[in-house]
Amino acid sequence: MFIINCPFCGEREQSEFKAGGEAHIVRPKQPTELSDDQWAEYLFMRKNIKGVQFERWNHAHGCRKWFNMVRDTSNDKIKAVYKMGEKPPVE
């Protein structure tokens, strides 16, 4: 359990949010030309990092907006929060 600083609403409890998984997975530009391996990579394969990970979150019980977060998954400490479309911060 941790507090998340929603870029739109400010600090709220994590239970108000929905985790949206790994961030910056780009939807294929030309889906018809993808091989099965590339589809599998896009749909299923995840980095699942132990350590600093870039994620998408949604303030489901608040403003309902999506945003990005940098979080250390080994101790749930949040490093940064930034809006969709913004450049991810470099460590």
Binding site: M1, Q14, S15, K18, A19, G21, E22, N48, I49, K50, Q53, E55, R71, T73, S74, N75, D76
Partner: peptide, 14 residues
């Protein structure tokens, strides 16, 4: 399960 990735062996109270 919680819906976020974590290796902390702690879950949420809710």
């Amino acid at each position: 399960t919680d819906d976020y990735v974590s290796y902390s062996q702690k879950g949420s109270h809710d």
